[in-house]
Design a protein around this nucleic acid. Structure first.
Lengths: 330, 330
DNA sequence: TTGTACGCGTTATCAA
DNA sequence: TTGATAACGCGTACAA
């Protein structure tokens, strides 16, 4: 006994398939018709086939979320927010990992043409001409969480890294720290470039010179630890440290402790992303909240809105940062 | 101009749709035919529609992963492993959050009948008769990551909590700790019940009595902190503490520090799951590795295998634990 | 308000 | 080897 189809229900109810379809989709029908159909549906345990439905209506009620690494806390936060919005709207979420390579991102965007999802929410870690082109030409609506040129012609939600950097520097300066160092992630990434620019600007605003700058090989805990020697070689020249994300900050804090430096007494540390790890680390980490959850939420809403109406002009939303002050700064 | 269909390609190439389909699916054809079809495909930028394909072949090449909370580190680890296996096999991953309620899990399992995915990988947080029934009757293959009665008749991959508990207690006893306390999560959950049973057995094996036992309201950092007063009220009666997961352990460690207790000197702390947080916490947390990544990987493999051959007898895999010793224990 | 019949884009069967 | 055509299960003109 295979799964019943709409034809089976119609036969069992003694009505036409059209009537069954109408009742199931809430279109006008007589009480008696609704009753008969419902009875047959229940009796047979009929469930509409979403494959056939997708082909017919040209929509899958699925959205794709593409991030570089589903394990990164900031993506986890975004994903959770996205999942909430999307499922509340009756859509399923297809989660894809692109990896660090831009060609994989391009392949993914092109692959949307197969029509397995109604929209794409992508947070590209690196951006090039090919990617912009593929996004502009994508067969389904695209929303970018991150920075992409306006000529891509799509909705965008991004953080304000420079403003966030300024909040961090303001705070440190207010606490009397002047010799500020910076640990970035890879500068050839979208967030890396933004952080670097923001740090330079923020120091300039305070007429300060960087006390030390280092670049980790990745935005991870391990990379943060590995970058420690570079910074510590400049021993004692900095009394504050800003890290491009929380993982780097926590990794570095472990090495600071190992080197006998106390946080925040000897070195104040500020992370970015304000992920759950910031609250959980010891000491709890002061961190720039770049609004990952809000970005996820708004990006998802933008995507849903665009699916409803693809004619509206692209919007570029910037989510403002805030500073979560904890015990890693004085 | 809408997307080209296989008919458009056939027309452009001057061949039949059947031939185009064959070439695209690698079925036997002459060199010249392959050449002509390929040329037309490239010229038109044709991409097969996966909706139509799904309807025809009865497969979507999608799998559903259902967990209670995509933000929980242990699920993140599992998800990453699952995503890797699944995408390598050419499948997409649909990620669904069930929430803490068992009725939502049942609805999800029933909903698989719509055929939007070829299989389900579920990690139920609570299990009841309804859920077991729905799993047994599910329209698509199901693999359970966790504990579910054999009568559900499905492949299962689970951790060995009791063995893991024993590893933790062995270690603590070897280090001279005898007054061992336990912080569990909700005992009416699958992992909570397993942890509780394991702790009791492990202490019995060493002929010890529990020094203190508390139950947090959830498996979270916040719940760990909130549970601290309960345990600390028993002040000084324990010199070691096992927590049902890493989040609880780290939350509690913050409160221990606030209470002036030093880890591991005053209290040795052991977590469970050996998530990335264990390595990142300060001091780094000794933790029972229950093999989340391996469970995810094997569950995904089991599901793929069952989709290929649904006749094989259900397998019940138990992944063995190990202990990752770090500085939170002497 | 209800029923008939067609088409969505693809794969698979059967003849040629 | 290739081509014509019948499904796959559903939604919806159009006609009654």
């Amino acid at each position: 006994m295979s799964r019943p189809t709409i034809a089976g229900v119609a036969r069992a109810a003694g009505v036409s398939v059209a009537s069954v379809s109408r009742v199931l989709n809430g279109l006008p029908a007589t009480e008696e018709m609704i009753e008969r159909v419902q009875r047959a549906v229940d009796a047979l345990g009929y469930v509409p086939d979403s494959r056939a439905r997708s082909l017919k209506v040209g929509r899958t009620f699925q959205l794709t979320l593409a991030v570089a690494d589903v394990g990164n806390p900031v993506y986890v936060t975004m994903m959770r927010a996205v999942e909430e919005v999307v499922s509340a709207a009756g859509y399923r979420l297809v989660v894809t990992t692109t990896g660090p390579d831009v060609v994989d991102e391009v392949a993914l965007v092109r692959g949307m043409a197969r029509g397995y999802a109604d929209g794409l929410l992508i947070s590209p870690i690196r951006v090039d001409e090919d990617l912009v082109k593929s996004i502009r030409e994508c067969e389904v609506p695209v929303v970018v969480a991150g920075n992409v040129p306006a000529k891509a012609g799509v909705d965008t939600v991004r953080a304000n890294s420079p403003k966030g950097m300024l909040l961090a520097v303001d705070h440190l300066v207010a606490k009397g720290r002047r010799r500020i160092a910076f640990l970035n992630g890879p500068a050839d990434t979208v967030p890396g470039a933004a952080r670097s620019k923001g740090f330079t600007e923020a120091l300039k605003a305070h007429e300060l010179q960087p006390a030390a700058v280092a670049e980790a090989t990745d935005f991870t805990f391990a990379a943060g630890r590995a970058a420690a020697p570079d910074l510590l070689a400049a021993g004692g020249v900095f009394d504050a440290l800003i890290c491009a994300n929380d993982l780097l900050a926590v990794g570095l804090m472990h090495e600071l402790a190992a080197a006998g430096l106390e946080v925040p007494r000897d070195v104040a540390v500020v992370g970015m992303d304000d992920s759950e790890l910031a609250e959980q680390s010891f000491p709890p980490l002061t961190s720039v909240n770049l609004g990952s959850a809000e970005r996820g939420r708004r990006a998802a809403e933008l995507l849903l809105a665009r699916i409803e109406d693809n004619e509206r002009a692209p919007r570029r939303i910037v989510v403002q940062p805030s500073l979560s002050i904890r015990r890693s700064t004085p």
